[in-house]
């Protein structure tokens, strides 16, 4: 029983990392209408930027800022110079998915060509272990959970209580209508790419901190978990992605404790399939009409 309860705690750590990544992914999707599979490779590229800064003697927590900046710039460049031109040409959504899949491989191979097929780790301490009941966390894991909560609250405030948030929501709901209402949707998309790209960079670094060691292709399986969290909550729904991240993260670890670690990812996806069978649009899509 204690391993099961302990696994819930591990699931919360995984969910925290997943939430940052999934929320960035889903907001980007909502605004750009591109299912950006290259997101995982941008995460890892950003994590390597943080690694380079960290290896120069800078704390990884400061390097997190560099990773956020790198993620923002790469995401903006990718959207403005690759996805947007394809969209202007009328490329179908599935065509854009294939383009993003190609980009995923290109960026991964680029990172691998630069860094080699090696596993690297940040120079940092995981901090002391804190035991609370059957839960077992390191200080770093507490920081990761705290960071995730802070980003979720920050994003909620941004979306709900700022003019930009309202413009972003309007653009995501209907870009043409938003434009006709005077919202400069091009600028909104650009800023949204920068913000979600920064989240992507943070997610990559936090993912690498949590894993302890990482390589160019480390986020491949994590991308599938991001997609699961996003589609569980409803694509384009940031609050859905938060809930989806918690469900997927906890289900993955808890199933490893209850059943066997061999099938922990399978169990998470069985949950996804069951939910989608009853609510095809995901948990947070109004009326499950999709």
């Amino acid at each position: 029983m204690s391993v099961f309860i302990e696994s819930i705690g591990f699931g919360l750590v995984t969910a925290s990392v997943l939430a940052i990544a999934a929320v960035g992914f889903t907001v980007q999707f909502a605004v750009t209408n591109v299912l950006n599979l290259a997101y995982a490779s941008i995460m890892i590229a950003s994590a390597f930027v943080a690694y380079a800064v960290n290896q120069a003697g800078v704390s990884v927590w400061v390097a997190l800022v560099a990773a956020a900046a790198a993620g923002a710039v790469i995401s903006m460049v990718v959207n403005q110079f690759i996805y947007a031109p394809f969209q202007r040409r009328g490329t179908s959504p599935i065509g854009l998915v294939i383009v993003s899949l190609g980009l995923l491989l290109i960026i991964e191979y680029l990172v691998q060509a630069l860094e080699g097929p090696v596993n690297v780790s940040y120079t940092m301490s995981q901090g002391a272990t804190v035991i609370v009941g059957d839960f077992n966390f390191t200080v770093v894991q507490f920081v990761i959970i705290g960071l995730s909560v802070a980003f979720m609250v920050g994003l909620h405030l941004l979306l709900r209580y700022t003019r930009f948030g309202k413009a972003l929501r309007a653009t995501a709901a209907d870009r043409t209508l938003a434009r006709n209402c005077g919202i400069r949707t091009g600028r909104v998309v650009l800023l949204a790419c920068l913000i979600t790209g920064a989240l992507c960079g943070v997610a990559g670094t936090v993912f690498a901190i949590n894993a302890g060691t990482f390589a160019a292709t480390s986020a491949d399986l994590f991308l599938v978990m991001i997609l699961a969290a996003v589609f569980l909550g409803g694509p384009g729904q940031p609050y859905g992605a938060m809930v989806g991240a918690v469900v997927i993260g906890v289900a993955t670890e808890a199933s490893a404790a209850l059943i066997t670690a061999d099938y922990k990812y399978v169990v998470a996806f069985v949950i996804l399939l069951v939910v989608l069978a009853f609510r095809p649009g995901g948990l947070f899509t109004a009326g499950a009409r999709s």
Binding site: V3, E6, S7, F10, V13, T14, N136, F207, N210, A211, F214, S218, A219, D220, L221, F222, E253, A254, A256, A257, A261, D262, K264, Y265
Partner: peptide, 14 residues
């Protein structure tokens, strides 16, 4: 251990 996974905390706890 799933080689594509990034954490093994539950496996380690078990």
């Amino acid at each position: 251990l799933d080689l594509s996974a990034t954490t093994f905390r539950t496996e380690a706890a078990t």
